[in-house]
Design a protein around this nucleic acid. Structure first.
Lengths: 138, 138
DNA sequence: AAACCACTCATACTAAAGTACCAAAATGAT
DNA sequence: ATCATTTTGGTACTTTAGTATGAGTGGTTT
């Protein structure tokens, strides 16, 4: 947000300067009006391209952004969420247990609780729902 | 491609007209140079935004495309692929059997063969790999 | 016709996954 | 320090998933 304000401020200053230079240059007869118009056109064309690229880049990043607020709303604990991510990665309960240095029983408990909170019956459904709720990435 | 040529042609014509009008209006003294510059600026800014939006929209549509050629390369049969899609949707073998009007045994066979062809051990891994290979959508 | 392949289904088995219930230790907040 | 939550783990059980093997049917290819 701070950067946006800075960029826009500099932009406005630059444009005012451009206007002044254009007007002065034309009045003093050192430059033709075609050149001025062409310059303005190119500059604003570039600005238009630049600003749109900035905003359009936010779309795909928003799609793959995880909604941490949603995780809290669901009541998912840190450990339950970790397990969910590993399930998405295709790991078995035993593999998750090894990766997180706990017993398989513990993982089963987490999985059961997680499935309840996501209101699904299977881990494959959990993957689907977690995607819909934007709490895991792809 | 035809449309692109058409759009660019009209664009060039419109710009030439704009230049002519600007020059004429200024020389005849009916309009100030500031207005001309502002108009040019707005028009080119809009063009810049428009062109960039056109090109950036092509990216997400490419990402969600399924690679039918890849399916053939893997040797996945039509039925095996159907089963894979239903697994992605979170269905159990029994549920898939009911949906496709076949026995659960048949589904198990399809699942086993599909897992072999995808070179994975579990259905959750199959979902992951199928995504990577772009053979299922999200 | 014979060979091949996809699809179907069954049995029997092993291995995961998931549920239910309980309980202790760790953590964090009031 | 007490209370609530999280994390951990166990036992026992049911359900689902996955493998192995065999086999019948229908359609296509050679």
């Amino acid at each position: 947000m701070k950067r946006t304000v800075f960029i826009f401020s500099s932009l406005i200053v630059a444009l005012l300067a451009l206007f002044q230079i254009s007007t002065y240059s034309y009045l003093s007869g050192t430059i033709s009006i075609e050149i001025i118009i062409a310059t303005i056109a190119i500059v604003f064309f570039a600005i238009g391209m630049f600003l749109n690229k900035k905003s359009s880049k936010k779309v795909p990043s928003l799609e793959s952004k995880i909604d941490k607020n949603q995780i809290k709303q669901l009541g998912l604990s840190a450990r339950e969420y970790e397990v969910l991510v590993e399930i998405k990665n295709g790991l078995s309960n035993k593999e998750i247990a090894n990766k997180l240095f706990v017993s398989e029983s513990t993982i089963k408990t987490h999985v059961s609780n997680m499935l309840l909170k996501l209101d699904v019956k299977r881990r494959t459904q959990a993957i689907q729902k977690a995607k819909e709720l934007q709490i895991i990435s792809f």
